[in-house]
Simulated scan of single mutants.
Amino acid sequence: MSATEAGHRYREIDVPVAGGMLHAAVWEPSDADADAATALVVHGVTASHLAWPFVVERLPGVRVVAPDLRGRGRSNGIVGPAGMAAHADDLAALLDALGIERTLVVGHSMGAFVSVVLAHRHPERVSRLLLVDGGLPLDVPAGLSTDELVAGILGPTATRLSMRFANAGEYLDFWRRHPAFDGAWTPELERYLAYDLVGDGAGAFRPATSYATTADDTLDMNAGTALPEALAGLQHPARLLTVPRGLQNEPPGLYAPAHLDRLLAAYPRVAHERVDGFNHYTIVMSPAGADVVAAAAREELAAATTPIRP
């Protein structure tokens, strides 16, 4: 079932940002009016807006806006540095272009880090934050080079960025062997993966995300100043969902229990829920995972519209 069949009209837009054009999608409810609730959903480090259709299907009546972050998808022609602040400013420009004053922001993986920084740099644009397996500092050793940091966090996810593929079928076969999607392969996943491919100029295909952009963002997430400053000044209600398995379907996932306990003690404004049964990908890109994320998003949307009593 596509998001359109589930009651949304899908359209794509391009918005001017520093260095080029930001590509984005809008899923508009078929029966929407001017007061329809809105969610801005922000994808992970090597993903695109097509990571979100399962969640969109489960948000009837909600306008969902999803960018291809700069350097990814059809936003991979933007010139200039990336980093959390640049992404956050791009999202503010996207909201401006759509006339959206304030919205729930849902971020997955790196998108959760971007969401936290967006709330800090443009606090009036964000009502609440829903962070999905990301947004709080990762447990990485100090002193690593950029390449070591990328390899340690992303592993084969980063390696594939330098690979070349003869066609979409070969790329899909590469992903079919990925342990994260064992038993979770769907047509929506195939569409998401095929969208990721672009021509390499020599007759083959490569992932749209460049390694250089991924490296810049990974370094900024883990060693930059934007995230710690945003977390230190966090004022918005923030809800974090974590899962027990990581990018390779391995335990303990991005947030080992002891590390997570330290983070939650350091950032008491973040409300945490552990969601068992999923890995870093399937919490968003599977029907069952999307059930969880969409239900949390609906709760956050309801909380955002509930009047505060004196």
Rank of each mutant, 00 (worst) to 15 (best):
Y10W: 13
E57F: 02
A184V: 12
A142N: 09
P156T: 01
Y267D: 06
V64M: 11
A184S: 14
A18Q: 13
L264V: 03
L59A: 08
W27H: 11
H23D: 05
L172D: 08
G44H: 06
S210W: 00
L193T: 09
E57T: 09
Y281F: 15
W52V: 06
Y192G: 06
D14K: 11
H49S: 11
A290L: 11
R74K: 12
H87Y: 12
A271Y: 00
A238G: 05
Q248T: 10
A215H: 09
W27S: 01
D173C: 01
R160F: 13
W185T: 06
A194C: 13
P156H: 05
V292S: 04
Y195V: 02
G77H: 14
A86F: 02
A6F: 07
A166Q: 04
A168H: 11
V17M: 07
L240V: 03
D261I: 00
V150H: 01
A226Y: 04
R70K: 05
A86C: 08
A47C: 15
F278Y: 14
L144I: 03
A230D: 03
E101Q: 14
H120I: 02
L144A: 09
G169Y: 03
W52T: 02
S115F: 08
V26F: 07
P123S: 05
P141C: 08
P16V: 04
H87A: 08
A258L: 11
T242Q: 03
R74M: 03
I100W: 09
G44R: 05
R9H: 13
F205T: 00
